[in-house]
Design a protein around this nucleic acid. Structure first.
Lengths: 192, 192
DNA sequence: CTTGATTGTCTAGCGATGCTAGGATCAAAC
DNA sequence: GTTTGATCCTAGCATCGCTAGACAATCAAG
């Protein structure tokens, strides 16, 4: 009994190590540098060990994405709960979202740019993802305006943030004007 | 003289063939399926020929992106010039943008999701890209509203469209509500 | 304590990938 | 007719994700 429990603990610890190492490597050198060989070397096991935890590289990306979703939901809730008034809440939410994307580019990629094999926008979407969307909905729903479905409004606002985040990071938008863009977005979209 | 001219013509034709084939293959089976071997086989030349035209796969993606930018600019201008009144123009622009992204996913990826080795948002940005942004600016600038810089407004509106396009295509947003999202976006952002 | 089976892990290798070196071929130039 | 130079291809490198099969460690049964 106890022996088996210890083994399960160690196995779970190794799985966390894999995910944490993949994330770290991706943040340091980009996801292209996260090869199964390099990852195996860093955790000091051979390649096939990775495949005893995950079906493949995709699932590892997916695991990082879920971790990121949980963190992002937490960051968003922390920021919005510290602000009072719907308007300041939405501004704080937008800033926090963009800052999260800018500070954790690899995690953001895992969540939204890469294929992590996760389901989206349907019933078997993993809980962390649903929860991250819920965190957005909580603050954005209250400024949707009359006659506008909160979920629809959240989708549009989220899409705008996502566009700003990705285009900025890819060099398609000059990074220095982020703040006025956020202000414009909140000004126009949020029905205070 | 004439011999050399013929050769140059043939060379240019082959280059166009490469780009067109890459695009076709990408639209049919996705960019992952566009390998140098497959591409070489389809144009009925050996792999190294590709490298006498392009520095590498990245540059081929870049060439498709430029072609796409020209087409998109044309589509946007056609749609907006057929509409009268700033408001309907912006709506037409938004619909056309999203439709272009949905109907040419591989080209859209080449332009905005993949690394085509192109410069953005600075002085040595290729002309087709500048022109596509200009096409956006022409219609969006007139609804920026007082005291809002047209370019800034265009960036934000574009980012929103880009977010909608990519999130929808990646399955992050359910595709059926595209139209109400567009209406909401135009309603709120455009100062009629 | 010795077996035998069950885990766990590793070495080695497969079929791909992007890209390149070096030789063969063929047409233009003298 | 010979030489030269451009053009193209065969063959191969290093690396990728992933897997089969051998090996070693651990455990249950006799």
């Amino acid at each position: 009994m106890s022996v088996q429990e210890r083994k399960e603990r160690e196995r779970a610890a190794r799985e966390r190590l894999i995910v944490a190492t993949a994330r770290e490597l991706a943040e340091q050198q980009g996801w292209d540098a996260v090869t199964t060989r390099r990852l195996a070397e860093r955790i000091e096991y051979s390649q096939p060990v990775l495949y005893s935890h995950f079906r493949g590289k995709r699932e590892i990306i997916g695991a990082v994405a879920l971790e990121g979703a949980t963190e992002m939901a937490g960051a968003l809730r922390a920021a919005t709960s510290a602000a009072d008034g719907p308007r300041t809440r939405v501004t704080a939410l937008a800033r926090t979202y963009l800052e999260f994307a800018a500070r954790n580019p690899a995690v953001y990629d895992a969540m939204f740019e890469l294929d992590g094999g996760l389901a989206f926008a349907n019933e078997d979407t993993p809980q962390p993802l649903k929860d991250a969307f819920a965190a957005l909905l909580e603050s954005l729903g209250e400024v949707a305006g009359d006659g506008v479905h909160p979920a629809l409004f959240t989708e549009v606002f989220w899409a705008a943030l996502h566009g700003l985040a990705t285009l900025t990071r890819a060099g398609r938008l000059p990074p220095q004007d982020t703040e006025p863009r956020v202000e414009l977005l909140v000004d126009r979209l949020a029905m205070v």
